[in-house]
Design a protein around this nucleic acid. Sequence first.
DNA 1: TTGACAGATGTAACTAGTTACATCAAGCTG
DNA 2: CAGCTTGATGTAACTAGTTACATCTGTCAA
Lengths: 336, 336
Amino acid sequence: MESRPKKKRANLRDVAKVAGVSVATVSRVLNSPKAVSEETRLRVEEVIDMLHFVPSAAARAINSGRTRVIGALVPTLDNAIFSRFLAALEKHLAMHGLSLVVATTSNDPEIETEKARGLVDIGVEALIVSGITHSPEFDKLMEQTRLPVIATSYFEENYHLPTVGYDNASASRIALDFLLASGHQKIAVVHGPVKNNDRTQARLSGLKAAKLAHSLQMFETDISIQGGSTAIQNLLRTKTTFTAILCFSDVLAMGVLFELQRQQINVPEEVSLIGIDDLPSSPYTFPAITTVHLPVARMGEVAAKSIVRWLDSQTVPDPYLLPAELIVRHSTRKLE
Amino acid sequence: MESRPKKKRANLRDVAKVAGVSVATVSRVLNSPKAVSEETRLRVEEVIDMLHFVPSAAARAINSGRTRVIGALVPTLDNAIFSRFLAALEKHLAMHGLSLVVATTSNDPEIETEKARGLVDIGVEALIVSGITHSPEFDKLMEQTRLPVIATSYFEENYHLPTVGYDNASASRIALDFLLASGHQKIAVVHGPVKNNDRTQARLSGLKAAKLAHSLQMFETDISIQGGSTAIQNLLRTKTTFTAILCFSDVLAMGVLFELQRQQINVPEEVSLIGIDDLPSSPYTFPAITTVHLPVARMGEVAAKSIVRWLDSQTVPDPYLLPAELIVRHSTRKLE
DNA sequence: TTGACAGATGTAACTAGTTACATCAAGCTG
DNA sequence: CAGCTTGATGTAACTAGTTACATCTGTCAA
């Protein structure tokens, strides 16, 4: 019924034709409107509106060589620590006109490599990854594409990629030292999977020195509320005595806390509990969880700014160490 | 020192030249390797490796008209309900070779519009938004671009965009009915901001009928653990009596639970507590929170599949109603 | 009156891929 | 041995923008 049988999306040439100007003029209306006379500009804008013209991002990208998209690879979105990080990252990238593509890896280097390939395929300008454990194929891909990559959640001065993160070993050390200084000797340690997880590994290594002198019992479990819960069930089954529990993440600590409440074990009267991360919810649990604060929001900000600088001025950023800080709340107490 | 002073990224033509074949052949090696002789293929692949050639996503997109990127606009990443949704969405989009760009709106229609414009600019093929409250500019943008858009977290048969979500009014009604059936008459309702939030508004409307017959006291607060905590502080200050608290989200319920514990008010002995959402942590709190389960992971899956079908076969999906289901746990009790 | 210059606009060549069509050789059939 | 088919490859025209350079008009000063 219409005059045009094939009504595809309008492009620059269509607009130019209808407005009776050249493609260059339409392009100018879009990109440097002051270079076009008022009259022409208004006419072109009218046609743009009329034809529902929306410039093709791909065509623009092919010329500028910029897609304005950054990719982030995180283990999961189901832990508040990563979603907070991404929230900060997204916010600060958006300030610089960059968008964030998120892909999850389930802590599996193979999935990570596959997803990284997918991100390269859609044309991300840079990549942000978690930790420094990656597959050889991943490293090869990064080398081939020469894409800016930043590793987060982990500080390592001499890693071949710039890192933005905290000293995981010292974070767990801070927590342990606080428990030891409070007179605790028999301590249960609840941590996430060790395999493929350099953050957990580093936190474990932070305890190594103390392990010889003191009684530390390790419990590996999933990083989730449920994981904390089952770890305590396992712990109680061993019938070993302990006066404090050190959790490698506040998510675990919350699970542990709930399970202790269920078992009628008082925190901190009977058992002291300390976590690592400091989630937004941690100050509000009852009792409020003592923890080691890791500035993830700051990490997102620093990562975003490093990427922006890298892209703008080809400067490979220096590794950035974020401070880990003890926050004493009410889930721990001094032993007499 | 090198022969080539300007060493840009290699492109198809460079590879073709070095390998001594035509651009078409290189393109074939990339896209339909079986159409090329073994010998030629190997030679070309060698050159690709040698020159670190990575095909330009933009150039591919310009031809196929597909960027393989989907945009999602969510209020925040700081609430587990949205990160779970995004996790499921990302997973199911990835299964179909689609990537997910995430942008946060802080529940502000203006920010949403701005971010939507950004997503259109980078060339997303479709958009997934939360709720049905959007600015006129947003609607205009969507109309102009004719982009597939799905509204989530909200079911509304007659909305101009397809919706995938639950009946928020009936979710709150389910929770309230359960409290009423358990003999509760004096009920405090803790909910998030009403402004610009159709989910909250719908949940409030679900209580309207009962509001006349029963004593419902409303408390508006931020959707966070802290928000739940302060709501209870405000509630206690009013000195009104109540036997149950209905929270419009489990995040609020957790904050409420912690604060009640701090105030030495027993749940469920003294006060019954019910939430809506059913977070992964909800079964593990002490006591485990009774709640109305909203299948967010399913929502992510359905949204992803709807988008895929829409893009593949131009079929605008039908609105999809997800069931809300009461999960009775241990934070509620029957009044004699 | 001429030259210089600014302002507005157009032409065409770029960007980096895909792909329809043409070409050519080799193998098979009648 | 002509004629047909198949397989492998190349040429060139697309995709949708940007932009260097050319052109044209008009104003102003010399």
